[in-house]
């Protein structure tokens, strides 16, 4: 049986609608913002494929043109021409109708650091602040190893409850938090960062996150009141050393 291009368009559009609204396929329901995008481009794609040939384009348009022009279809046309604006009116109402619900969240997951921040009674410029112990790696490896070891002790006394014994973000309390504590293991997080970024995040914690995209949901404490800057720098050494990552170099 030969299916007309217009019917093909309708069937494929319905199929696309069913697919994107099928939670079983995606494991979880898709948010409306994504469904709108997926549906829009599904329709565009279906139209493009059908209209590649003149035959397809004519087959798609002919029934519509005939419907609009044919005197025999006047009654049906009137019904449809009333229904279409009503459908758009309903969609408009739906999009403008305010519900009693929390507003849409636009939170970005990646906090951009500030240029500088105040801690321990002084100003730290993110772009130029260096780990004071990093130079020991070359100049005095023995002292460096000692600092790393001390950093490890600080970590296990303070951080591992959330960030885990394996530095994989799966500490005892990890499951209680959304977002989950950051894993340091692997190259997904600290491998892409400069040490000054870690210093900022540890020292200022959740309260120090930027205003953009607030409110943040971070449970990270501001460690400035609990650890000295030296202890924080040593902990950072340990994080990189244990995970085998290298911090991004300052330029």
């Amino acid at each position: 049986m030969k299916i007309s291009p217009l019917l093909q368009f309708v069937l494929f559009t319905i199929a696309a609608f069913i697919i994107v609204n099928m939670p079983a396929l995606f494991g979880q329901p898709l948010p409306e913002s994504l469904i709108v995008l997926y549906m829009f481009f599904s329709i565009v794609m279906i139209l493009l494929v059908i209209t590649v040939t003149d035959k397809g384009a004519e087959g798609l348009l002919r029934p519509i043109v005939s419907f609009v022009n044919s005197p025999e279809k006047r009654r049906l046309r009137r019904v449809v021409f009333i229904l279409i604006p009503l459908a758009f009116a309903f969609l408009t109402y739906r999009s403008l109708h305010s519900e009693v619900a929390a507003p849409v969240e636009h939170r970005q997951v990646h906090p951009a650091p500030p240029d500088s921040f105040r801690a321990y009674g002084r100003e730290f410029v993110i772009q130029s602040t260096k780990n004071p112990f990093r130079a020991l790696e070359k100049t005095n490896p023995g002292e460096f190893r000692k600092a790393v070891k001390q950093g490890g002790e600080i970590y296990f006394k303070n951080c591992f409850f959330c960030h885990g014994a394996l530095l994989d973000g799966r500490g005892h309390y990890a499951r209680a938090f959304t977002p989950a504590p950051l894993p340091f293991k692997g190259g997904n997080t600290i491998a892409q960062l400069q040490e000054s970024y870690l210093f900022w995040r540890i020292v200022t914690g959740g309260p120090g996150l930027p205003y953009e995209s607030a409110p943040w949901s971070s449970a990270m404490p501001a460690w400035e009141s609990m650890l000295s800057s030296t202890e924080v720098w040593k902990t950072i050494l340990f994080l990189y050393d244990y995970t085998g990552n290298r911090p991004q170099e300052l330029r």
Binding site: G27, Q28, P31, E32, S33, L34, P103, V104, E105, V109
Partner: peptide, 22 residues
């Protein structure tokens, strides 16, 4: 997008901010 634009009800239905597959 990695970070989706979500309504509160959608976040609840998804059980978090991130869609497991998407």
């Amino acid at each position: 997008p990695h970070t989706l634009v979500l309504k509160a009800s959608e976040e609840l239905a998804m059980g978090g901010r991130y869609h497991a597959l998407v």
